[in-house]
């Protein structure tokens, strides 16, 4: 169980982005998070994944703090995959940074073997996004924060990405926080949804 307890975060001293946010994500749960741009959705996602440290409150995983090293059990999937990969590594090295996915898993996520010898610049955004999602599914991972991962995809590719992720999450009981502007998508994916505005979370 991933727990956020009374998180507070501000970039400048006088304008808080998040105030007193508490949230629980259980294993196998799909939770949707919507909000206007600038509302702090990504900041909250990064706090949960340990990319940022909250100024007040804390994040716990099964009652303990997030580990400081090793494979992070909470993985953050960014909106722009091209900014999340090393441009000097080939796709094979990027994909296998933390673990080596099986051929069947590669196939489920539509990662083609011929991409492996290429550099990330020669893949399209949608192709690279699938590599990045599969990369983050190492066996140690328990929770995912999917931050607008399908906005740049066409409807069919978007659907296939979510179907593959849903299947994998079902199998391993992964908890997923889906951050998106797209209310229709959230309604499809997540039985529980939250809306972030003015630094506060409300059920949606």
């Amino acid at each position: 169980m991933l727990n956020a307890h009374r998180l507070g975060f501000r970039f400048s001293p006088d304008t808080p982005i998040l105030e007193d946010i508490s949230l629980t994500l259980k294993a196998g749960q799909w939770l949707g998070l919507s909000g206007d741009s600038g509302a702090g959705k990504s900041t909250l996602g990064k706090l949960l994944a340990g990319y940022l440290m909250p100024q007040t409150g804390y994040v716990t995983l099964e009652g303990a703090a997030l580990p400081k090293n090793g494979v992070q059990p909470v993985q953050w999937l960014p909106q722009s995959p091209e900014l999340a990969v090393n441009p000097r590594w080939r796709v094979a090295k990027i994909l296998r940074e933390a673990w080596t996915p099986s051929d069947a898993q590669c196939q489920a996520f539509g990662v083609k073997p011929k991409w492996l010898s290429r550099f990330p610049q020669s893949l399209s955004g949608g192709e690279l996004q699938r590599v990045c999602v599969l990369r983050a599914l190492a066996p140690e991972v328990r929770f995912l924060v999917a931050d607008e991962i399908s906005t740049m995809l066409d409807p069919i590719t978007q659907l296939e990405l979510w179907q593959a992720l849903k299947q994998e999450a079902q199998l391993r009981q992964l908890g997923v926080l889906v951050i998106s502007h797209d209310t229709a998508l959230l309604e499809r994916l997540c039985p529980q949804r939250l809306h972030l505005s003015g630094g506060q979370l409300k059920p949606y």
Binding site: P155, I156, L159, D182, R188
Partner: peptide, 13 residues
């Protein structure tokens, strides 16, 4: 297929 794959339609392949 493109139309039906939209989340507010069938959301199915």
């Amino acid at each position: 297929a493109l139309w039906l794959a939209l989340p507010d339609n069938a959301f199915a392949t």
